[in-house]
Simulated assay, not measured.
Amino acid sequence: MAAIDLSDYTLGELKGLLFDVEQAIKARRRQELQGAQARIAEIARDAGIPIDALLDRAKGRRTS
C-alpha cells in the first residue's frame, strides 16, 4: 500500500479522516460478517443441517 502524505492536513482534517476511516472499518466488518453468515448458512443448507443445530452446538448444547 502506498504511503499517504498527511503532513499538509490540519488537525481538524486529520480528525475527520480518522472518523471516516473508523466508519469505513465498521462497515467493512459488518459486510464481512454478513458474508460469512451467508456462506455458513449455505453450507448448512447444502448439508441438510438446520442453523439452529449449529448454534446449539456452538453454545455447548448437544442435539441429536
Results as ranks from 00 to 15, higher is better:
residue 3 A to S: 05
residue 8 D to M: 07
residue 24 A to S: 15
residue 6 L to D: 10
residue 61 R to T: 14
residue 52 D to V: 01
residue 38 A to M: 11
residue 43 I to W: 03
residue 20 D to N: 11
residue 26 K to R: 08
residue 20 D to P: 07
residue 43 I to T: 12
residue 38 A to F: 10
residue 50 P to N: 06
residue 25 I to G: 03
residue 28 R to P: 12
residue 52 D to Y: 01
residue 19 F to M: 00
residue 55 L to W: 01
residue 35 G to Y: 02
residue 17 L to Q: 04
residue 34 Q to P: 02
residue 1 M to P: 11
residue 6 L to S: 09
residue 30 R to A: 01
residue 40 I to G: 02
residue 1 M to T: 10
residue 11 L to Q: 08
residue 36 A to N: 15
residue 29 R to M: 01
residue 33 L to E: 15
residue 56 D to G: 08
residue 53 A to K: 05
residue 57 R to T: 14
residue 5 D to E: 15
residue 9 Y to N: 05
residue 32 E to D: 14
residue 13 E to N: 09
residue 23 Q to S: 09
residue 44 A to G: 00
residue 9 Y to D: 04
residue 10 T to G: 02
residue 20 D to A: 07
residue 61 R to K: 15
residue 18 L to W: 12
residue 41 A to D: 14
residue 17 L to S: 08
residue 4 I to K: 13
residue 48 G to C: 06
residue 20 D to G: 04
residue 36 A to C: 13
residue 54 L to N: 12
residue 16 G to Q: 03
residue 62 R to Q: 04
residue 60 G to P: 09
residue 23 Q to W: 02
residue 60 G to K: 01
residue 33 L to H: 15
residue 33 L to V: 15
residue 24 A to F: 11
residue 51 I to K: 09
residue 49 I to C: 04
residue 18 L to N: 14
residue 53 A to W: 01
residue 47 A to I: 06
residue 61 R to D: 13
residue 64 S to W: 08
residue 26 K to T: 01
residue 34 Q to G: 02
residue 51 I to P: 13
residue 55 L to Y: 03
residue 34 Q to M: 04
residue 30 R to F: 10
residue 8 D to K: 00
residue 53 A to T: 10
residue 60 G to D: 09
residue 51 I to C: 01
residue 59 K to W: 01
residue 15 K to W: 00
residue 12 G to P: 15
residue 17 L to P: 02
residue 34 Q to V: 00
residue 53 A to R: 07
residue 64 S to A: 07
residue 59 K to M: 07
residue 37 Q to C: 12
residue 9 Y to E: 02
residue 2 A to L: 00
residue 47 A to Q: 14
residue 50 P to S: 01
residue 10 T to W: 09
residue 22 E to P: 05
residue 9 Y to H: 03
residue 59 K to T: 09
residue 59 K to Q: 12
residue 16 G to I: 00
residue 50 P to T: 08
residue 27 A to I: 05
residue 32 E to N: 13
residue 34 Q to K: 05
residue 11 L to V: 03
residue 26 K to W: 01
residue 8 D to Y: 01
residue 49 I to V: 05
residue 8 D to P: 10
residue 63 T to H: 14
residue 33 L to K: 15
residue 32 E to H: 12
residue 52 D to F: 00
residue 58 A to K: 12
residue 23 Q to T: 11
residue 41 A to Q: 14
residue 54 L to F: 11
residue 10 T to C: 05
residue 41 A to I: 10
residue 25 I to T: 10
residue 26 K to D: 06
residue 35 G to N: 13
residue 32 E to F: 08
residue 26 K to L: 07
residue 56 D to N: 11
residue 30 R to W: 00
residue 41 A to L: 07
residue 44 A to W: 03
residue 53 A to I: 01
residue 1 M to W: 00
residue 40 I to F: 05
residue 3 A to L: 08
residue 57 R to S: 11
residue 50 P to D: 09
residue 10 T to S: 04
residue 16 G to S: 03
residue 13 E to H: 06
residue 46 D to T: 02
residue 37 Q to E: 15
residue 1 M to N: 07
residue 50 P to W: 07
residue 27 A to H: 03
residue 58 A to V: 09
residue 18 L to Q: 14
residue 4 I to H: 13
residue 48 G to S: 10
residue 10 T to I: 04
residue 9 Y to K: 04
residue 54 L to R: 12
residue 45 R to Y: 08
residue 11 L to R: 07
residue 10 T to N: 03
residue 15 K to G: 01
residue 35 G to R: 11
residue 58 A to S: 11
residue 3 A to Y: 03
residue 11 L to E: 10
residue 59 K to L: 05
residue 7 S to I: 08
